[in-house]
C-alpha cells in the first residue's frame, strides 16, 4: 500500500510521517519512506543524512543521456542502480529523498524512467509512505499516480482545512480510486476538532493532540526513531491503522 501524507505547509505532515516511519520500523514491514518535500524535513526528523537524492539521480541520468549511446534499457538499469545507491537504510526501512529539483531543461524521457523506477521500487516493499510537498503541486503533476490512500493533514485552522479539501478535490480527479481521510493535528481541546469535523465534508479519521514530547523532539532536532510512546504517537498510529496502512 502506498500512502501519501498531504496538506498545507506547517500543519505537521512531516511529524506525522516521522511517527508513521517509526511505527513501520517497529512493525517489521519492509517499507519505503519517501521524503518528497524539497525542504527535506523528514530526513532531519528521522536523523537521516541522505548521501544522494533523487534529483542527484536525475542529474546523473541526464548526463548519461547527453553522453549518448545509451538506449532506454541501459538508462532504466542505471536508474535502478543509482536509486538503490540513493537509499539510506535503517530498521527494515529504506529512505529516499527527492531533493530540490533544479531547472535543467526538459527531459521527459528521464522523468518517465524515474517515475517508473520509483513505482517499481515501491512495488517491492510491503508499504510506502510519502511525505508530500506542501500544497497541491505534486498531486497536480500526477507524481502520486500510484498512491492508494491520501492522508490529509490539517491543524484546527479553517485555512488548513480548506487546503486539505482542495487537495482532496484534485486528488479525487487524478487518482479516483485512492482513499482519503483527514487527520486533525495539534488539537488542544476536543471542541476544536468537533468544530473542524462539523465544518468539512472530509471524513475525519484521526485527532492528534498537541503534545509536549513531540514539541520537544521538534525543537531539539531529536530523531523521531527515539520518540517514546506519547499521546500524539498513539493517535497517529491509530489514524494510520484506520487508513488501513498499519495493522
Amino acid at each position: 500500500m502506498i500512502l501519501a501524507v498531504c496538506g498545507k505547509g506547517g500543519v505537521g505532515k512531516t511529524t506525522v510521517s516521522a511517527i508513521g516511519a517509526k511505527a513501520l520500523a517497529a512493525s517489521g514491514v519492509k517499507a519505503l519512506i519517501v521524503d518528497a518535500d524539497p525542504a527535506a524535513g523528514l530526513a532531519m526528523a528521522l536523523g537521516i543524512e541522505p548521501k544522494r537524492t533523487l534529483n542527484d539521480v536525475r542529474k546523473a541520468i541526464i548526463e548519461e543521456v547527453k553522453a549518448g549511446r545509451r538506449d532506454e534499457r541501459d538508462l532504466a538499469v542505471s536508474v535502478d542502480y543509482l536509486v538503490a545507491e540513493a537509499l539510506t537504510e535503517r530498521d527494515n526501512l529504506a529512505f529516499l529523498s527527492i531533493g530540490r529539483p533544479e531547472d535543467v531543461g526538459c527531459y521527459c524521457k528521464v522523468n518517465v524512467i524515474l517515475k517508473d523506477a520509483i513505482e517499481m521500487l515501491g512495488g517491492m516493499f510491503g508499504a510506502t509512505l510519502i511525505d508530500a510537498e506542501a500544497g497541491i503541486e505534486q498531486v497536480n503533476r500526477k507524481v502520486m499516480g500510484a498512491v492508494d490512500y491520501v492522508l490529509l493533514v490539517s491543524d484546527t485552522s479553517a485555512k488548513a482545512v480548506r487546503v486539505a479539501e482542495t487537495i482532496r478535490d484534485v486528488s479525487g480527479r487524478m487518482i479516483p480510486d485512492a482513499g482519503a481521510g483527514l487527520l486533525v493535528n495539534r488539537v488542544r481541546e476536543p471542541a476544536e476538532a468537533d468544530r473542524v469535523e462539523s465544518n468539512t465534508s472530509l471524513e475525519v479519521i484521526g485527532r492528534v493532540p498537541e503534545d509536549d514530547t513531540v514539541r520537544e523532539f521538534d525543537a531539539g532536532q531529536k530523531s523521531f526513531f527515539d520518540l517514546p510512546e506519547c499521546p500524539a504517537s498513539i493517535a497517529v498510529e491509530g489514524t494510520l491503522t484506520a487508513a488501513g496502512f498499519l495493522s
Binding site: E64, D71, R73, V77, Y81, A84, E85
Partner: peptide, 27 residues
C-alpha cells in the same frame, strides 16, 4: 540488447543485482 537483458534478468531468490552499464559496475 538480448545478451545484456539475459545478464541483468537472472532474478534469483535472495540475490539483488544492480548494474550501471556505462560504468560497468555490478552491485
Amino acid at each position: 540488447r538480448d545478451l545484456r537483458d539475459a545478464v541483468y534478468d537472472t532474478r534469483l531468490k535472495g540475490l539483488s543485482v544492480r548494474a550501471m552499464p556505462s560504468k560497468q559496475v555490478l552491485w
